[in-house]
Each structure stands twice: as C-alpha cells, then as structure tokens.
Design a protein around this nucleic acid. Structure first.
Lengths: 146, 146
DNA sequence: GAAAACTCCTTGTTTTTTGCAAGTAGAATT
DNA sequence: AATTCTACTTGCAAAAAACAAGGAGTTTTC
C-alpha cells in the first residue's frame, strides 16, 4: 500500500465535514437511518430537543446535499416525509463504526454489548439489517397510501 | 440478528456527536490521524484556516475528552505536541469509512481511486497502515529527543 | 548576552449562529 | 364551520465564531 504523502488534497474529510460535521445533522441521521423516523414532528420529539428553526434549516440543507428526499406523506397530506437517499444510506457503515467506538468509550453507554459485537463480527451483515429496516419503512409508506 | 427496537437509548450517537460532532474537530482529527500533524502551528497552516482562539479551545476540549495527550516537544521546548491517544486512534475506521463515502459522492474529490479501493478491499489493513504511520511519527519524536 | 524571532496561546471586538417563544398557513378531523 | 394537527417562519436575546491584536515563554542570532 505504497502511498505518497500528498496523493490528495481536495480532502474527502472536508467534504464530509461540510455536510455532516454538525451535531444536529448527526442526530438527524441517527433518527432517520437507525430509528425509522421520517417526519418533522418525530424529529422534534427526540431526547435532544432541537429547536424548530434549526430543524427546518438542517433538513433543508440535508435535502440540498442530496441526503434526503422531501415528499408529502401519501397517507396524510399535511405530513411531510424526509426519506433517506442512497447517499444517506451509504453513511451507515461510518455511522455504525462511530457508534461502536462510542459504545467502547462511553462509560455510561446504554447500548447493549451485543450491538458492537454484532457489528465487529459482521459489519456488512449489520449494515444490511439496517438497510432492510429502511426498506421496510419505505414499503409501509408506499403500501399504505390512501 | 434479532434485535428489538428499543434495545438502547443512552445513545452512542449522542456521545460521539458531543465529542466530534463539529467541523473543526473533524478536520483536526484528519490532520492528526491522517496527515501526521502534531503542533499548533501545523494545524493553523491547514487549508481551512481555523482561527487561533477556536483552535486552542478545540484542542483543549479534545484533550479533556481523552483523545489527545498534550506535551512539550522534547526536541524543542517552545513547541507543544498534541499526540493522539488510543481512543483517538480507534476513530480511524469510522473516519476512513467517512472518507470513502466522500470520495464516492464528491464530484470534485481529489482523493485517488486507489484510496477507497484499498479500504474497501481490506479495511483492517488500511487502518493498520495509518496506525503504523502514527507510530512512526511517535518514534521520530521520542527518538530524536535532544 | 541582548535582541530578534518563533511558538502558543489570550484578550478584545464584531459578526454569525443558536435557542426560545410566538405566530402563520395548509390539510384533516369533528 | 370550527377546531386540531403538522410544518414551518419570524423576531429577539444569548451564545458562539471569526477577526485582529497583543502577550509570554523559548530558542536562535549576532
């Protein structure tokens, strides 16, 4: 794996930081990718108590970055859904990796040991499991359209 | 991989977001873990032009979080070194995962194709390569002490 | 061995972002 | 038709970030 020091400079890290280098974006992606949340109201209910203007701003910035698809709920026209795109789904490995790290170092973690163990043993399997959950939520929405 | 919906709630994501859920911390970790930078002056020189007060604040917060060890340079007493701890090193997989993601989606990426390819083919090998680089920098510092 | 330079910050000051409270607008329910 | 539900917007005070300048050790230079 020979690699000279200056192979790249356009910096993927800066690109990533520009899109999700923010506490609130992090937590929104958790809610969407891991907890099945899809609507403004659900995001507001998370433990961290994001304020409404910040939530609206972040959702629109994630949409602009191509991570979320905004659409009205086919089941209820007053509700807006924010659906994760492929680009957002592809963050799952990094996000789960970060969670494994946190689980290891947070003395107060409430994550079960089994979570990190499962991811370390079979990362792709874990990712697939969460992808399937996302598909399930999608199907539920489209399937139950009025 | 059976797993009930509410297995955990203390939230690793929130823990991670609290420590590195910030653009500047992201970029600092890149500089330290990936680019071999260790000193205040080197951090200031990065393309993103962090301002001095923010840099000082972030360095001390990363130190407090246990990601950095602050020590004076044995080679030059006026220089302070910020060395990554094991806790920081353990962020490598997540950080590299994020970079692979960015490389895929940033149309202007300057990262060589080989980087993502190498990581996908052998994540542990890539991590080991960067760990070795960090060890090399460490050895250089300790070895060249006056 | 005094002066200049280097390195790591600290201290103001201005500008931007956040957090909070209240209010608006469209769709659904009663 | 009126109330409720859901998704925002707006206005304002407080906190944080960016910018510019300066200070305090340490090392180098002459």
């Amino acid at each position: 794996m020979a690699r000279s020091k200056k192979d790249w400079h356009g910096c993927p890290t800066r690109y990533a930081a520009g899109i999700i280098g923010d506490k609130w974006c992090f937590l929104l992606l958790r809610d969407i990718l891991l907890h099945g949340k899809r609507s403004y109201g659900e995001f507001l209910q998370s433990d961290e108590k994001i304020s409404t203007n910040i939530l609206a701003e972040r959702l629109s910035s994630l949409e602009e970055a191509g991570l979320l698809d905004r659409q009205t709920d086919p089941r209820k026209g007053s509700r807006v859904l924010y659906l994760p795109t492929r680009k957002a789904r592809d963050l799952l490995p990094a996000l789960l990796g970060l969670m494994v790290w946190a689980t290891k170092y947070d003395p107060e973690t409430e994550a079960p040991e089994s979570f990190a163990k499962a991811y370390v043993a079979d990362p792709q399997g874990s990712v697939a499991w969460y992808e399937a959950e996302i598909d399930r939520v999608d199907a539920e929405i489209r399937g139950a359209a009025k």
